[in-house]
Amino acid sequence: MPLTHEAKGVFPIAPTPFLDNGEIDYQSIDRMVAFYLECGSTGLTVLGQLGEAPKLEFSESLDVARRVIERAGQLPVVVGVSAPGFASMRALTQEVMGLGAAGVMIAPPNTLRTDDQVFNYYHQAIEAIGSDVPFVIQDYPLTFSVQMAPAVIRRIVNELPSCVMLKHEDWPGLEKISTLRQYERDATMRPISILCGNNGLFLDYELERGADGANTGYSFPDMLCDIVRMKADGQVEAAHDLFDAHLPLLRYEQQPGVGLAVRKYVMMRRGIISYAAQRRPASPMSGRAQGEVDNLLRRLARHDPRARVAAHP
């Protein structure tokens, strides 16, 4: 089924598992997708910013997307297709949609500075990939250095009907969510799904501001699913308590440059993937950092028993 503006819940950003020799670890992909299904994910995103997509050959990108889509069953899969040029974006989009992807995610290049430039970029991108392909705006100014004001997001949503979701990663960004939802209440912007990233650092309050869920890659996506479910069930204080217990690890994993190494290490300790390997160029964790993460896991295990599986004996 194609992605729609009604998407809710948790769409984990899946890392790309590698063997220690740098080859794609397809068995870990299978196990990882099975874990996402079991923990209550409502969708998946592959080949995102922390999926090491730029390190993959075109054929490898297709292989990863195909494998995830096949294993995901009825779960919608969004594929990151951001690229320096529209020709490669169009080619990858056509291929993954043919494989059964639900939609694509597009991040802006870091050269954009004005609202008009941002809008024109997305307008041209949709001309390239086709207006029949549902797409997600990735709003991540801390990485892409592109500031998207709520008004320009509204313009994209209103003038490009195939825009169905915002991956919200602005920081601070709570007021942006409130503004966008007010646009919807005022009927000046059509409804869209808002799923949040930033490793889930602000998910507890983002949900209270009107976000529909999470679209991020934290090493405990099952916790993110719990938070979304508990909030929806009215278990607000319990959700905050669970979130607070994970916050030190969330913060550690969000560090620029080392976050993916931490995420893969914890996912390996949990048995979700077999290796913590990244494809070069990469920034592996030091022994000191591994010790710090193990300590965070031991402390987390006092409140969430799922962390006991991950900690060293």
Rank of each mutant, 00 (worst) to 15 (best):
N158R: 13
N158C: 13
E159Q: 12
E159T: 05
L160V: 05
L160G: 00
V164K: 01
M165T: 04
K167E: 03
H168L: 04
W171R: 06
P172E: 11
P172W: 09
G173Q: 08
L174P: 02
L174A: 06
E175T: 01
E175R: 09
E175Q: 00
S178N: 08
S178M: 11
R181N: 11
R181D: 02
Q182G: 07
Y183V: 03
Y183T: 06
E184D: 03
E184R: 01
T188P: 02
I192G: 02
I194G: 03
G200W: 00
G200M: 06
G200K: 12
L201K: 12
F202E: 05
F202V: 07
F202C: 14
L203P: 06
L203C: 09
L203H: 09
Y205S: 14
Y205H: 10
E206L: 09
E208S: 15
D212K: 00
G213E: 07
G213D: 13
A214N: 11
A214W: 07
N215G: 10
G217Y: 00
S219A: 15
F220C: 07
D222N: 11
D222H: 11
M223D: 09
L224N: 02
C225P: 01
C225E: 00
C225T: 05
C225Y: 02
D226K: 06
I227D: 00
V228H: 00
V228E: 04
V228N: 04
M230K: 14
M230A: 05
K231H: 15
D233Y: 06
G234M: 07
Q235D: 14
E237S: 12
E237F: 09
A238L: 13
A238Q: 15
A238W: 05
A239N: 08
